[in-house]
């Protein structure tokens, strides 16, 4: 088919370009601007070149936050993905149970982040929190304010509680799209429960699972509000993830230069990882 080429069509995308420029590109440029300068009061700027970047890349604090964040993302993916698949497989496919389950699953996803944080902050307290109080009453020493391990457990359980539903909903959408004939054919072929999962359900869920993994990875890598509300990054720095560290630097210490450099590096890491995921996904599609 012949296509009509007309360069005037570019004007049609102009409004979007302007909008994106104002909402994203220009603010980003101010960050770039900060990252190469040192600032003092009264808007006095000194050229710093790559100093902040070099400092950042040699800073233990940055790398520790990064490692913590990667471990956190890895743990929650390792829990939420299998758990999400398991729950989705066991959800009803028809009848009154479907809307009930879907609403229950969607509930946690629509709660605002800081509310989730507050819920768990109170829930886990060992003086008035239901969880904290009874866990301690059972003789288990649990205190997320003082014990780094307990703090991690709390933050991870909170994230699993908050976001497993997303994985469930995506997987469920993949599962209900499988026609009955596939299950019937599997019966006729004498397939075991495991073979049905491995050769029918999992392949059909593969695409939504990739999206789920991508979303959960990005979100957990950028996590800020919930751990900030629950632990404030503590005890010590034990739950200080990258974004918490960033906010501490930028707004706590008002080190705008280093914070800007950090944002850019952070941004590039996420961009890189998104690209990796995107490539993996599109290659996978091309293979089909």
């Amino acid at each position: 088919m012949d296509k009509t080429w007309n360069n005037k069509a570019w004007f049609l995308v102009l409004p979007v370009l302007v909008l994106v420029a104002f909402s994203a590109v220009i603010p980003l440029m101010t960050v770039v601007n900060y990252s190469v300068q040192d600032t003092f009061g009264n808007n006095v700027f000194f050229w710093a070149g790559t100093e902040w970047f070099e400092e950042l890349l040699h800073s233990d604090r940055f790398w520790e936050a990064m490692v913590r964040n990667l471990i956190f993302s890895f743990i929650i993916l390792a829990i939420e993905v299998p758990l999400g698949i398991f729950i989705a497989l066991n959800m009803p496919k028809k009848g009154w149970g479907v809307p009930v389950c879907l609403v229950l699953m969607a509930l946690t996803v629509i709660i605002p982040w800081n509310v989730v944080g507050t819920i768990w902050q109170v829930f886990g307290r060992n003086d008035i929190g239901l969880l904290g109080y009874y866990v301690n009453a059972l003789g288990i020493d649990y205190n997320y304010v003082q014990d780094p391990f307990d703090a991690w457990v709390t933050v991870i359980i909170m994230d699993v509680w908050h976001w497993t539903s997303l994985v469930v909903l995506l997987c469920y959408a993949g599962l209900v799209s499988i026609p009955d004939a596939f299950y019937q054919a599997a019966k006729i072929d004498g397939a075991s429960r495991w073979a049905v999962f491995r050769y029918i359900q999992l392949p059909k869920m593969q695409r939504v699972l990739l999206i789920a993994v991508l979303l959960r990875f990005m979100d957990s890598f950028m996590i800020y509000t919930e751990p900030f509300v629950v632990t404030g990054g503590g005890p010590g720095n034990s739950t200080t993830f990258l974004s918490i560290d960033l906010v501490k630097t930028a707004l706590g210490q008002f080190d705008l230069g280093p914070a800007a450099a950090m944002s850019l590096v952070y941004f590039l890491i996420i961009l890189l990882l998104s690209w990796v995921f995107y490539t993996v996904m599109t290659n996978y599609d091309a293979e089909r």
Partner: peptide, 23 residues
């Protein structure tokens, strides 16, 4: 069935072998 049911992650050979291997 009305619509072809195939196990798309498998090769043609494995598709045919599937009912036998299950048994």
């Amino acid at each position: 069935f009305q619509f072809p049911v195939i196990y798309d992650t498998m090769t043609v050979y494995d598709n045919l072998a599937f009912p036998l291997r299950n048994r």
